[in-house]
């Protein structure tokens, strides 16, 4: 599903993460690592938001640099700590992303209702709590018809009911053929989600670890 070749990301010439070879099979994958290990950097690279050395292929067909539009149409990403201009509303952001990601009719309303943002989504972001912001970011991550969705710390700052709804959404989308990369310091084994594999970022690289 996802094939990473000779990946290297450096900031100010200092290597942050190096992944010589990685093949991710379809499924739900859990990426772990201490703060600053490079989880978000890896996710952002896969999402095409950061430049890097190497290649990232989706389904051995689309490469992030060679097929920028086709790749981004199929790979979604929700930020861990989203930051949006305070005068925009979730409605502005969601409408824009939904159009760009070619979201099917009705998907926006469905997500807005599932994550319960109907009451505030037309209000400016400047009035939101961190949980409301997080829900907005999660909705952006689910829009369109993606092959892969990456959710960075999807369970933080949201209430218990929203956690259950997000897990349900992940499960529902996965049953429809969407693959997931999730990062979290929380233990997914405590939720109803079934992880297919787990990886850890340490020593500036990504290693598979056994799910205990």
């Amino acid at each position: 599903m996802l094939h990473v070749k000779n990946y290297r990301k450096a900031y100010h010439s200092r290597t942050i993460l190096e992944v010589p070879e990685l093949q991710l099979q379809p499924g739900i994958h859990w990426i772990r690592g201490v703060n600053g290990a490079g989880k978000s950097t890896f996710f952002r690279s896969v999402a095409g938001m950061l430049p890097f050395e190497g290649e990232i292929w989706l389904d051995d067909t689309w490469e992030v640099k060679r097929d920028p539009v086709a790749f981004r149409l199929r790979v979604n990403y929700a930020e861990a700590e989203p930051l949006y201009p305070e005068y925009l509303s979730a409605f502005d952001l969601i409408s824009f992303v939904a159009k760009a990601k070619k979201a099917p009719a009705g998907q926006v309303n469905e997500l807005v209702e599932t994550l319960e943002i109907t009451s505030f989504w037309k209000q400016p972001v400047g009035t939101y709590s961190s949980g409301m912001l997080k829900k907005t970011s999660l909705i952006l991550g689910f829009l369109g018809n993606p092959t892969l969705i990456m959710l960075d710390e999807p369970l933080i700052t949201i209430d218990d009911r929203a956690v259950a709804n997000v897990c349900q959404l992940i499960d529902q989308y996965h049953q429809n053929g969407v693959q997931f990369l999730l990062s979290s310091h929380q233990d997914f084994r405590l939720t109803d989600l079934k992880m297919d594999s787990s990886y850890i970022i340490r020593n500036q690289t990504l290693e598979e670890i056994h799910l205990g």
Binding site: R44, A47, M49, V69, R72, L73, E79, P85, V97, K101
Partner: peptide, 16 residues
């Protein structure tokens, strides 16, 4: 700076 600080998510969008 606005694009890179607040609209980084736009780089994940399939905009031609």
């Amino acid at each position: 700076t606005f694009e890179h600080e607040y609209l980084l998510f736009v780089r994940n969008l399939p905009l031609s």
